[in-house]
Amino acid sequence: MVTDAQLQQLAISIGERLRARNWRLVTAESLTGGWIAKICTDIPGSSTWFDRAFVTYSPEAKQQMLGLSSELLERAGIVSEAVAAAMASAALTRGQADIALAVTGVAGPGGGSSATPVGTLCSAWTDINRQAQQQPPWVETCHFQGDRDQVRRQTVHHGLARLRDILA
Protein backbone atom coordinates (compact mmCIF):
# COMPACT_ATOMS: atom_id res chain seq x y z
CA MET A 1 0.00 0.00 0.00
CA VAL A 2 1.32 3.41 -1.00
CA THR A 3 1.41 5.76 1.98
CA ASP A 4 0.89 9.51 2.21
CA ALA A 5 4.49 9.79 3.43
CA GLN A 6 5.76 8.06 0.28
CA LEU A 7 3.74 10.40 -1.93
CA GLN A 8 4.99 13.43 -0.01
CA GLN A 9 8.60 12.28 -0.34
CA LEU A 10 8.19 11.86 -4.09
CA ALA A 11 6.76 15.38 -4.39
CA ILE A 12 9.65 16.82 -2.36
CA SER A 13 12.16 15.05 -4.62
CA ILE A 14 10.40 16.28 -7.76
CA GLY A 15 10.30 19.81 -6.40
CA GLU A 16 14.04 19.75 -5.75
CA ARG A 17 14.74 18.50 -9.28
CA LEU A 18 12.42 21.06 -10.85
CA ARG A 19 13.94 23.93 -8.84
CA ALA A 20 17.43 22.82 -9.87
CA ARG A 21 16.38 23.15 -13.53
CA ASN A 22 14.29 26.27 -12.91
CA TRP A 23 11.33 24.34 -14.36
CA ARG A 24 7.64 24.26 -13.49
CA LEU A 25 5.17 21.36 -13.62
CA VAL A 26 1.65 21.23 -15.05
CA THR A 27 -0.71 18.27 -14.65
CA ALA A 28 -3.75 17.08 -16.60
CA GLU A 29 -5.71 14.70 -14.40
CA SER A 30 -8.77 12.60 -14.98
CA LEU A 31 -8.70 9.44 -12.86
CA THR A 32 -6.99 11.20 -9.93
CA GLY A 33 -9.30 14.23 -9.84
CA GLY A 34 -6.50 16.61 -8.88
CA TRP A 35 -4.79 14.35 -6.33
CA ILE A 36 -1.39 14.73 -8.02
CA ALA A 37 -1.72 18.51 -7.82
CA LYS A 38 -2.77 18.24 -4.17
CA ILE A 39 0.28 16.16 -3.26
CA CYS A 40 2.55 18.64 -5.03
CA THR A 41 0.97 21.75 -3.55
CA ASP A 42 1.03 20.27 -0.04
CA ILE A 43 4.79 20.92 -0.16
CA PRO A 44 5.76 24.34 1.22
CA GLY A 45 7.33 26.46 -1.51
CA SER A 46 5.73 24.45 -4.33
CA SER A 47 4.59 27.68 -5.97
CA THR A 48 8.16 28.01 -7.26
CA TRP A 49 7.87 24.77 -9.26
CA PHE A 50 4.17 23.91 -9.67
CA ASP A 51 2.21 25.86 -12.29
CA ARG A 52 -1.34 24.49 -12.45
CA ALA A 53 -3.57 21.46 -12.84
CA PHE A 54 -6.23 20.75 -15.41
CA VAL A 55 -8.75 18.45 -13.75
CA THR A 56 -10.56 17.05 -16.76
CA TYR A 57 -12.71 14.29 -15.35
CA SER A 58 -15.37 14.28 -18.06
CA PRO A 59 -14.95 13.97 -21.82
CA GLU A 60 -16.43 17.47 -22.14
CA ALA A 61 -13.79 18.88 -19.79
CA LYS A 62 -11.05 17.26 -21.87
CA GLN A 63 -12.50 18.97 -24.92
CA GLN A 64 -13.18 22.38 -23.33
CA MET A 65 -10.11 22.77 -21.12
CA LEU A 66 -7.50 20.93 -23.18
CA GLY A 67 -8.93 21.18 -26.68
CA LEU A 68 -9.04 17.43 -27.30
CA SER A 69 -11.27 16.49 -30.21
CA SER A 70 -14.37 14.37 -29.81
CA GLU A 71 -13.03 12.29 -32.71
CA LEU A 72 -9.86 11.42 -30.75
CA LEU A 73 -11.85 10.54 -27.64
CA GLU A 74 -14.22 8.32 -29.63
CA ARG A 75 -11.56 6.70 -31.84
CA ALA A 76 -8.90 6.03 -29.20
CA GLY A 77 -11.13 5.84 -26.13
CA ILE A 78 -11.01 8.03 -23.05
CA VAL A 79 -8.63 5.57 -21.37
CA SER A 80 -5.86 5.27 -23.95
CA GLU A 81 -2.25 6.20 -24.44
CA ALA A 82 -3.30 8.48 -27.32
CA VAL A 83 -5.61 10.48 -25.04
CA ALA A 84 -3.04 10.61 -22.23
CA ALA A 85 -0.42 11.88 -24.70
CA ALA A 86 -2.81 14.50 -26.06
CA MET A 87 -3.66 15.60 -22.51
CA ALA A 88 0.02 16.01 -21.59
CA SER A 89 0.83 17.93 -24.77
CA ALA A 90 -2.18 20.21 -24.41
CA ALA A 91 -1.47 20.90 -20.73
CA LEU A 92 2.10 21.86 -21.56
CA THR A 93 0.92 24.15 -24.36
CA ARG A 94 -1.84 25.77 -22.31
CA GLY A 95 0.10 26.08 -19.06
CA GLN A 96 3.15 28.11 -18.11
CA ALA A 97 5.32 25.09 -17.40
CA ASP A 98 8.27 23.13 -18.73
CA ILE A 99 7.10 19.57 -18.06
CA ALA A 100 3.68 17.93 -17.98
CA LEU A 101 2.17 14.80 -16.47
CA ALA A 102 -1.22 13.45 -17.57
CA VAL A 103 -3.28 10.51 -16.29
CA THR A 104 -6.51 8.88 -17.43
CA GLY A 105 -7.94 5.56 -16.33
CA VAL A 106 -10.62 3.51 -14.63
CA ALA A 107 -10.61 3.55 -10.83
CA GLY A 108 -13.76 1.48 -10.34
CA PRO A 109 -15.60 -0.16 -8.90
CA GLY A 110 -17.63 0.13 -12.12
CA GLY A 111 -16.88 1.59 -15.50
CA GLY A 112 -14.44 -1.01 -16.71
CA SER A 113 -14.71 -3.11 -19.85
CA SER A 114 -12.87 -6.06 -21.34
CA ALA A 115 -10.63 -3.61 -23.24
CA THR A 116 -10.04 -1.32 -20.24
CA PRO A 117 -10.73 -3.21 -17.02
CA VAL A 118 -10.96 -1.49 -13.64
CA GLY A 119 -7.44 -0.60 -12.55
CA THR A 120 -6.26 0.45 -16.03
CA LEU A 121 -4.11 3.59 -16.10
CA CYS A 122 -2.71 5.42 -19.11
CA SER A 123 -0.09 8.04 -18.29
CA ALA A 124 1.95 10.47 -20.34
CA TRP A 125 4.83 12.84 -19.68
CA THR A 126 6.32 15.46 -21.96
CA ASP A 127 8.60 18.44 -21.62
CA ILE A 128 9.57 21.53 -23.55
CA ASN A 129 12.57 19.81 -25.14
CA ARG A 130 10.51 16.89 -26.49
CA GLN A 131 7.86 19.30 -27.71
CA ALA A 132 10.42 21.56 -29.42
CA GLN A 133 11.89 18.51 -31.20
CA GLN A 134 8.37 17.37 -32.12
CA GLN A 135 8.87 14.10 -30.27
CA PRO A 136 5.77 12.41 -28.86
CA PRO A 137 5.24 12.23 -25.10
CA TRP A 138 6.44 9.24 -23.14
CA VAL A 139 3.39 7.01 -22.54
CA GLU A 140 2.69 3.99 -20.40
CA THR A 141 -0.24 1.74 -19.59
CA CYS A 142 -0.43 0.00 -16.22
CA HIS A 143 -2.96 -2.22 -14.49
CA PHE A 144 -3.40 -1.82 -10.74
CA GLN A 145 -5.27 -4.00 -8.26
CA GLY A 146 -7.38 -2.91 -5.33
CA ASP A 147 -10.35 -0.76 -4.53
CA ARG A 148 -11.00 2.71 -5.94
CA ASP A 149 -8.80 4.49 -3.40
CA GLN A 150 -5.94 2.02 -3.88
CA VAL A 151 -6.05 2.32 -7.69
CA ARG A 152 -6.06 6.12 -7.48
CA ARG A 153 -3.25 6.16 -4.89
CA GLN A 154 -1.12 3.82 -7.03
CA THR A 155 -1.79 6.06 -10.02
CA VAL A 156 -0.53 9.14 -8.16
CA HIS A 157 2.53 7.23 -7.02
CA HIS A 158 3.30 5.86 -10.47
CA GLY A 159 2.91 9.23 -12.18
CA LEU A 160 5.15 11.00 -9.69
CA ALA A 161 7.76 8.21 -9.53
CA ARG A 162 8.12 8.16 -13.30
CA LEU A 163 8.28 11.98 -13.37
CA ARG A 164 11.09 11.86 -10.79
CA ASP A 165 12.95 9.35 -12.96
CA ILE A 166 12.50 11.50 -16.08
CA LEU A 167 13.94 14.47 -14.18
CA ALA A 168 16.96 12.46 -12.94
Score class of each variant (00 low, 15 high):
Gln8Pro: 00
Gly159Thr: 00
Leu25Gln: 06
Asn129Pro: 00
Asp149Phe: 03
Val2Glu: 08
Gly110Arg: 14
Ala100Asp: 12
Val26Met: 07
Gln145Ile: 00
Gly45Phe: 06
Glu29Pro: 00
Leu25Ser: 11
Leu10Gln: 09
Glu60Thr: 13
Ala90His: 07
Glu29Asp: 06
Arg162Gln: 14
Arg19Thr: 14
Ala5Trp: 06
Gly110Tyr: 12
Glu71Ile: 13
Thr32Asn: 03
Leu160Ile: 06
Val151Arg: 02
Ser47Pro: 01
Ala88Met: 00
Thr126Asn: 12
Ser70Tyr: 02
Val79Leu: 01
Ala107Gln: 06
Thr41Trp: 00
Gln154Asp: 09
Ser89Gln: 15
Arg75Met: 13
Ser114Val: 12
Arg153Ile: 00
Ala37Gly: 14
Gln6Met: 14
Thr116Ala: 02
Phe54Ser: 00
Phe144Arg: 02
Trp125Asp: 12
Met65Gln: 13
Thr120Ser: 10
Ser123Ile: 11
Gly15Val: 07
Leu72Ile: 07
Asp42Trp: 07
Leu18Gly: 08
Phe144Gln: 09
Gln64Asp: 12
Ile43Gln: 15
Gln145Asn: 14
Thr3Lys: 10
Thr3Asp: 06
Gln133Gly: 04
Gln134Val: 04
Ile128Gly: 10
Leu66Asn: 06
Leu92Ile: 08
Leu10Trp: 10
Glu60Gly: 02
Leu10His: 01
Asp42Gln: 12
Asp42Ser: 11
Tyr57Leu: 11
Leu167Trp: 06
Thr27Ala: 11
Ala132Val: 03
Val83Cys: 07
Asp165Tyr: 10
Asp42Met: 12
Arg21Met: 14
Asp165His: 15
Asn22Pro: 02
Ala168Gly: 13
Leu66Trp: 04
Thr3Val: 07
Phe54Gly: 00
Gln133Phe: 12
Ala132Leu: 13
Leu92Gln: 09
Ala11Tyr: 09
Leu18Cys: 11
Leu163Gly: 01
